[in-house]
Design a binder for these strands. Structure first.
Lengths: 117, 117
DNA sequence: TTGACATATGAACAATTGTTCATATAATCA
DNA sequence: TGATTATATGAACAATTGTTCATATGTCAA
């Protein structure tokens, strides 16, 4: 940050900045939260999560539903697995995916409700 | 999508796929929702929104708070303005930013609560 | 055991995005 | 008026990311 990026002392509301800084959740929480949002920032993944909230589906079903390749679908499922948001059970050749819990879909629902207004 | 990406008819649960497809919110809603999440997928923007939920702040304050340059801060504020999430009032040289409404911060709060568990 | 199938995954590529740098605008002050 | 300050913004660059392609693994049927 160059000196041109520092405000004159008078124009900074130091009190407010200090207060805001203290009020902020700690860095780790912020990073975790924005990481979650980033994962939700892809239509494909939102569709997967929404679909799985109604019923379990195999990779094949999901690819079909999304109009995506198996490979792309599998890659996206890995992202969701890494977040701990989906789990799967293997049955023969097939892998049936489902949600680990409902809270992510609650977030999506909340956002949909607002978007529909 | 090549033919290698098509499942055999038997392995697709066509009934489930059809049901899931119908249950999905329409494409526009999905896109709008994931666009919102994408914008929330940056720690910097989450910090800005969270800070503004407590009090209005000028660009200078925000840059100071974030440890970012004025330019970077201003660019991020534009993104938030484009989403309609923040507004500002000009007072002399200064631009004081504030939230247009509370709903986005509610989403963030909800996510923070879960992240803290 | 061989071939077909469902899924997983690394590498490469194209597209997107956040930051920086340079510059523009508008307001204040000397 | 000319200098300084607060903010905005376009262009360029680096980093990140989603998809595709090629290939690997494990299962089932013949």
């Amino acid at each position: 940050m160059s000196s041109a990026d520092t405000c004159s002392v008078e124009s900074i509301n130091q009190e407010a900045v200090k207060k805001a800084k203290q009020g902020l959740p700690n860095e780790k929480i912020i990073l975790r939260v924005s990481e979650s949002f980033k994962v939700l920032g892809e239509p494909t993944r939102v569709k997967i999560l929404f679909s799985l909230s109604k019923q379990e589906l195999c990779v094949c079903d999901l690819a079909n539903l999304l109009g995506a390749t198996h490979s792309a679908t599998s890659h996206q499922l890995r992202v969701l697995r890494n977040m701990g948001w989906v789990k799967f059970k293997k049955t023969g050749k097939m892998a049936y995916y489902s949600l680990t819990d409902q809270h992510i879909v609650n977030l999506i629902d909340m956002s949909i409700k607002h978007a529909e207004e």
